[in-house]
Simulated scan of single mutants.
Amino acid sequence: MNFTRRRGTIAFFITLGTLLVGLAVTLNIGWVVLNERTVALAVVGIILFAMLIAGVVLNTVFLVREIRRNERQDSFLNAVTHELKTPIASIRLYLETLQRRPVDEAQRQQFYTNMLADSDRLLATVEQVLKAGQLGQRHRQQSRTLIDLGSLLSECIAITLQRHHLPPDAIVLQPVPGGVHLRVMGLADDLRIAILNLLDNAVKYSPEGVHVRCSLAITHYTWATLRITDTGVGLPPNQHKRIFRRFYRVPGRTMLRIKGTGLGLFLVRSIARQHGGDATAASQGPNMGTTITLTLPLANPSTASEASSSMANGRSYPTMKERA
């Protein structure tokens, strides 16, 4: 209902802006025709007309943008409320069952396992929201360390398999060409969050079966590239960049059935850029799967010394666009 109302409001402001622009054009043309012999007045009229048109267009764009931003924030609040309420309700139900009637030891242990899983889900949601707030602070005084991406990726795959109760072959890690170790300078906790978000998304948006491929490679001699490919719902052509916005979720019936906060890929891109890299998405279309590529600069002795001095001075690495 709110979605339909907001769509109507956006259509109203766009229509109003179009009508105002059309009215201004008509009045200006009529005014110029009536005063065609007065060149000075015609020039002044054209300038005022351009200013009026610019004001109307900017006002309409601003209003539409604010409506869409409020829509994304409302969707985020609804999603977070669901993500918080569901595990809390589940934990409460298990506790009430244990309190009201006796259960055998096997069932009790199963209850404990389910409650731990729900608490992990609750904690993951809270940490995701907190991390999104922390990433808004540009100067973060934390020491960067040398990280083996292969080991970190294997650890994240094991966590994801356990978290979603998947068989080992659901997420396949392809061997690195040449068997080399890809190391980067960074914050291990942040990169772990980024990779876990990518894996969770690949699992979550594969409702017909999880078949995820992960690969690591060196590109352009100085970059470590992580690609995570699924066979899930895919992306429409105009959504490849939008999915990295804060609170943004792809519209559609399938997406409505899949719960989320709209922060996962925003965190991935923010973390990648804070490490001097970037994150991109590619898909051949709906139901054709999605590939998310995370690119980070490889570590070397000069990078390590630069990281130490940069953190001491409160600076961060240049991004891929700045390096180009």
Rank of each mutant, 00 (worst) to 15 (best):
M1C: 06
F3M: 10
T4W: 13
R5F: 13
G8H: 13
I10V: 15
F12V: 05
F12H: 11
G17D: 02
T18H: 09
L19A: 09
L19N: 03
L19S: 07
L20M: 05
L20N: 02
V21L: 11
V21C: 12
L23Q: 15
V33C: 06
L34M: 14
R37S: 12
A42T: 08
V43E: 07
L52Y: 09
V57K: 00
F62L: 05
F62S: 09
F62C: 02
L63Q: 09
S75P: 00
S75H: 01
L77E: 14
H82M: 14
H82C: 12
H82A: 15
A89I: 00
I91P: 01
R92W: 07
R92T: 12
R92Q: 12
E96Y: 05
T97Y: 10
T97M: 12
L98E: 11
L98C: 06
R100P: 04
D104I: 08
A106H: 01
Q109W: 05
Q110K: 11
L116T: 12
R121F: 09
R121K: 13
R121G: 08
L123M: 00
A124K: 04
A124Q: 10
A124R: 04
T125S: 13
V126R: 02
Q128M: 14
K131I: 09
K131D: 13
L135T: 09
R138P: 14
H139E: 05
H139D: 03
S143P: 10
G150M: 05
G150Y: 07
S151T: 11
L153D: 09
S154Q: 13
T160Y: 05
Q162W: 04
H164D: 08
I171D: 06
V172L: 07
Q174N: 15
V180G: 01
H181W: 07
V184C: 08
V184E: 07
I193L: 00
I193K: 00
N201E: 04
V203D: 04
V203R: 02
V203L: 03
Y205D: 06
S206W: 02
P207M: 04
H211A: 10
V212M: 14
A217H: 08
I218H: 02
Y221S: 11
Y221K: 08
T222N: 15
T222S: 15
D230V: 02
V233W: 03
H240S: 12
K241M: 13
K241Y: 14
L256N: 12
L263T: 04
L263N: 03
S270V: 04
I271S: 01
R273Y: 01
D278M: 09
A281M: 10
P286S: 00
N287I: 04
G289P: 09
I292Q: 00
L294T: 01
L294P: 01
T295S: 07
N300F: 11
P301N: 09
S305G: 08
S305P: 06
E306Y: 13
A307D: 15
S308D: 14
Y317S: 10
P318Q: 10
T319S: 14
M320W: 15
A324K: 14
A324T: 15
